[in-house]
């Protein structure tokens, strides 16, 4: 994975400006759609720490995303009524903590076994919310949004949520851009390139992988938290492995070769899904076709870069 250069960052900044200007020209519906894409981008970007960063493919990632979403339900208005100042750090701690615990176990395995272990642990989190009354049941629950400092009304809601999501994604991207430049980030890229060499050079490969898994999980929790805040709805579906696969798709679609790839992938997939919904009833046909095309034809993703 290469870090996005000055030109790439300028393009991203222009894109962010375009999204930020949406309240001036777009309908509330399209602003909600943009919020969906921004949240998908956060989720995919958090996964990029693993896929593009260390070269790990995890199917547990949606579990951490869902934990972040459910922390809004568990601490927010119907239950405890805490504000975002509490629910967001709580989401980070909960998802990061779960990622630390699951990663410590799953990283004992490699390759196929790692994939299967993450699949099973992710489903375990899914069952926790699907089969027990902890999360309000198998069908999901509507929640009231926790106070975010601005009083939301029907009129200003799409605008405020859009800007909050844009700000969160920007902060997350900047943090990761910085993180991947530190010694820690470089070491992760080194593991992806040649794990044995990094170990031979005295790096604690297992510890670094676990740290990356935890950071990725915590950031997925942020994405899930923002999803719950935006949609005011949580369901066990958020934790299911299909959603992990979808995040992997966004990463692959955007390109695992560049840090900003998943952002492009998330916007592209959201647009394709929206177009698919308008054109046909057959959502899965559209998504399956996109995946096949991405896997068979688009080997380097939208962002390019020789990441493979």
């Amino acid at each position: 994975m290469t870090l996005t250069g000055a030109r790439g960052n300028l393009m991203l900044a222009l894109g962010a400006l375009a999204v930020a200007s949406m309240p001036l020209w777009a309908t509330p519906y399209h602003m909600q759609l943009a919020s969906t894409a921004l949240i998908a981008a956060m989720f995919a970007l958090s996964l990029q720490v693993l896929v593009g960063g260390v070269g790990l493919v995890s199917l547990a990632h949606a579990g951490f995303y869902g934990l972040g979403a459910y922390s809004v339900y568990l601490l927010g208005l119907p239950k405890l009524g805490l504000s975002v100042a509490v629910t967001l750090p709580a989401a980070i701690l909960l998802s990061g903590g779960a990622a630390l615990a699951i990663g410590a176990l799953a990283l004992r395995t490699k390759g196929f076994f790692f994939l299967m272990a993450t699949l099973a642990f992710g489903q375990m989190l899914f069952f926790l919310f699907h089969d027990t009354p902890l999360g309000g049941g198998a069908d999901g629950v509507f929640i009231q949004r926790p106070p975010i400092g601005i009083t939301l009304s029907r009129g200003n809601r799409p605008t405020v949520l859009l800007l909050v999501n844009l700000g969160t994604l920007t902060a997350m991207y900047a943090a990761l851009w910085w993180l991947m430049r530190t010694l820690f980030g470089r070491a992760l890229l080194g593991i992806k390139a040649n794990e044995h060499r990094m170990a031979a050079m005295g790096h604690d490969v297992q510890g670094l992988k676990l740290a990356a898994f935890t950071v990725a999980g915590a950031l997925a929790g942020v994405a899930g938290h923002m999803a719950a805040l935006t949609d005011a709805f949580v369901s066990p579906e958020l934790l299911g492995w299909h959603r992990s696969a979808e995040a992997l798709l966004m990463v692959l679609l955007g390109g695992i070769g560049a840090l900003h790839g998943p952002i492009l992938g998330a916007f592209a997939l959201t647009l394709v899904q929206e177009a698919g919904q308008m054109l046909t009833e057959r959502q899965r046909l559209v998504e399956g076709g996109v995946i096949l095309a991405a896997v068979l034809l688009l080997r380097h993703g939208l962002a390019g870069g020789r990441g493979r």
Partner: peptide
């Protein structure tokens, strides 16, 4: 191919098989 490609290819097959069944 890498695991990522295999995972996504077979995930696509799940979606396509389900859609074919629905159709």
């Amino acid at each position: 191919r890498e695991h990522l490609d295999q995972v996504l290819l077979t995930f696509a097959l799940i979606l396509l098989f389900e859609e074919a069944r629905a159709a």
